[in-house]
C-alpha cells in the first residue's frame, strides 16, 4: 500500500493550520522535529508503519 502517510500529513496540516500559512510552516516544522519531513512523502510513498504510528499519535490529540 502507498500514499497513506501523505494523506495523514495533509489531514493534520489542514485540521491544525486551517489555511493559515504561518501555522502551516510551524506545523511542518513540528513534524520535521519528530523526524517526519512532509516534503518527502507523495501519494506514491510506501506506508511505513513506524511513521504512520507517529502520525496516529498526533492525530489522536486532534480528536
Amino acid at each position: 500500500m502507498a500514499g497513506k502517510i501523505k494523506q495523514m500529513i495533509d489531514s493534520i496540516i489542514n485540521q491544525r493550520a486551517k489555511d493559515n500559512p504561518m501555522l502551516v510552516g510551524v506545523i511542518k516544522s513540528k513534524l520535521m522535529l519528530k523526524g517526519i519531513d512532509p516534503n518527502k512523502f507523495t501519494a506514491m510513498s510506501d506506508d511505513d508503519p513506524a511513521i504512520i504510528a507517529k502520525l496516529e499519535a498526533v492525530m489522536k490529540e486532534l480528536k
Partner: peptide
C-alpha cells in the same frame, strides 16, 4: 515541547 506542540498552536 513535542507534546505541547501536539496540543496547541500557541507558541
Amino acid at each position: 515541547i513535542d507534546k505541547i506542540g501536539d496540543l496547541t498552536n500557541v507558541n
